[in-house]
């Protein structure tokens, strides 16, 4: 069995203690909330469902498919889990998956697990579910399209945050690693989006009751919608900014002063540095990123419609 080591599973040693601690803190708060929310709002039946769903996500991650030039698409499943089970249960399920991958298979570290859970479980739930929640009462085609777009953005956001965490730890140089990470994950995210859409379409076709759209667990959606939209926008805006102009980000980060010990201070950027294919002004790169996202969402809308029509024939 090969688990294609997804670059998202950060091992121990790659993040500093400060960065690890920050993300552990966020993760513990979110997972704690998720535990109390799921305990309260969902019946005792939810425990076996979440458990088997975690195993399902784990198993589904083995369904690789070739993308291009030897890269293989690797399903992450966070968005699908959050949409089908609700965001809190989705977070718990992904936490269990990331946890067991680290504990049992050393796929991702223990001290850095907080960051890994944040990237692959929390971001995906917030973005994937938040965006989906926005259109939950819309027609099937739109919902599927947004689910796909959400899955793509969530994957990109996970790559973005992983890069930022590595950079804040002084492990990588942002201007080298970020374009690479985002480039690879633009493809991986595409696979993620398409699989999420196809799986949702299949589920909605065969067991629409499982996606019961007025589930009580789906209440209080505004918080999710706002955070989903805001974080997606941030991710879409920051990515090109960060890869085109990391000085700005670094300044913000050092102004905020949470960079850890001097030993781990991030790198100063070479003065003559620029990345040709993104242009050199922040505006142009933001534009490029936004256009890319719109094109992608358009594609996914088309695919969603297409799938929808085929199924209803």
């Amino acid at each position: 069995m090969n688990f294609s080591p997804a670059p998202l599973h950060i091992p121990d040693g790659f993040l500093t203690i400060v960065v690890s601690a920050i993300f552990w803190l966020i993760t513990i708060v979110m997972v704690g909330l998720a535990v109390s929310k799921t305990n309260r709002s969902l019946g005792e039946k939810q425990i076996p469902i979440m458990g088997v769903m975690a195993a399902f996500i784990f198993a589904a991650q083995m369904l690789n498919f070739p993308i291009a030039g030897g890269t293989s698409g690797h399903f992450l499943g966070g968005t699908l889990a959050a949409i089908v089970l609700g965001p809190w249960a989705g977070i718990l399920v992904m936490t269990a998956v990331v946890g067991i991958q680290a504990l049992l298979f050393q796929d991702g570290g223990l001290l850095v697990m907080g960051a890994n859970i944040f990237n692959m479980g929390i971001l995906t739930a917030v973005i994937g579910y938040g965006l989906y929640r926005l259109v939950i009462h819309q027609k099937k085609g739109i919902r599927l399209a947004v689910a796909g777009g959400g899955a793509w953005i969530a994957t990109m956001a996970a790559a973005l945050f992983a890069s930022l965490e590595l950079w804040l730890s002084g492990t990588t140089r942002l201007e080298i690693v970020l374009p690479a990470m985002l480039g690879v994950h633009a493809l991986i995210g595409l696979g993620e989006a398409l699989i999420t859409v196809a799986a949702l379409a299949y589920i909605e076709q065969t067991r629409p009751d499982l996606l019961n759209l007025d589930n009580s667990a789906r209440e209080g959606g505004w918080g999710w919608i706002v955070s989903g939209v805001v974080i997606s926008l941030l991710a879409v805006l920051i990515s090109p900014l960060a890869s085109g102009n990391p000085d700005g980000l670094e300044k913000i980060a050092s102004d905020l002063g949470f960079l850890g010990s001097g030993l781990d201070a991030p790198f100063q950027i070479l003065p003559d540095y620029s990345i040709p294919f993104l242009g050199d002004t922040a505006i142009s790169t933001i534009l490029a990123g936004a256009v890319g996202a719109i094109v992608l969402i358009g594609l996914v809308v088309l695919l969603g419609r297409n799938l929808h029509r085929q199924k209803s024939d």
Partner: peptide, 21 residues
Amino acid sequence: WQIKTTGSMVGQLFLRSYERS
């Protein structure tokens, strides 16, 4: 075709898992 079958395999696996739970 690959992606579509993978997607429906994921959907299928999901349903089986759900029924199992």
